[in-house]
Amino acid sequence: MIRESDDVIVKAVARLLMPFIVVYALYVVMHGHYSPGGGFQGGVILAASFVLLGVSHGLGKTRRRMSEKVAGVISSIGVLIYGGIGALCLILGGNYLHYGKLSKLLHVTPAEARSLGILGVEIGVALAVMAVMCTVFFAIFTVGESPEDDRSVE
């Protein structure tokens, strides 16, 4: 269990930098078309912000913001978005992930529908990757401990 460190400098700098890391991760996800990035890279950077929070402020406070249950729900939502867009294309009459058929639903040209379809899929991938990375981080850093250890006198 990582207890809260009494190090003022690392805590203050982590608290200052975390929102900017999250915004940068969203930028990387959105600009996957034009520059290196996309879903997987943005998800990893989002998870890195949670790792920074966990290392500097202790695992208890991180659990209050992202518990294992919420991480499981978010990963399922990510997979639902990915599979849902593919299935929606199937329902509208094309193959799986044939984004051109979405143009009837969104009232745009098929080229723009393809672009928007890929963006939606990348968002689903980023959510799923972030949740799985957070779960892995929690699993590695709480090995061999039980919740009763927290309540002992320390």
């Binding site: 190090d7 400098i9 690392v10 700098v13 200052l16 930098l17 900017f20």
Partner: peptide, 16 residues
């Protein structure tokens, strides 16, 4: 700007 903030913090963490 990010390097200016982050690198001295990492050095401080190692020395501590």
């Amino acid at each position: 700007v990010f390097m200016f903030l982050a690198q001295p913090t990492a050095t401080h963490a190692i020395s501590r």
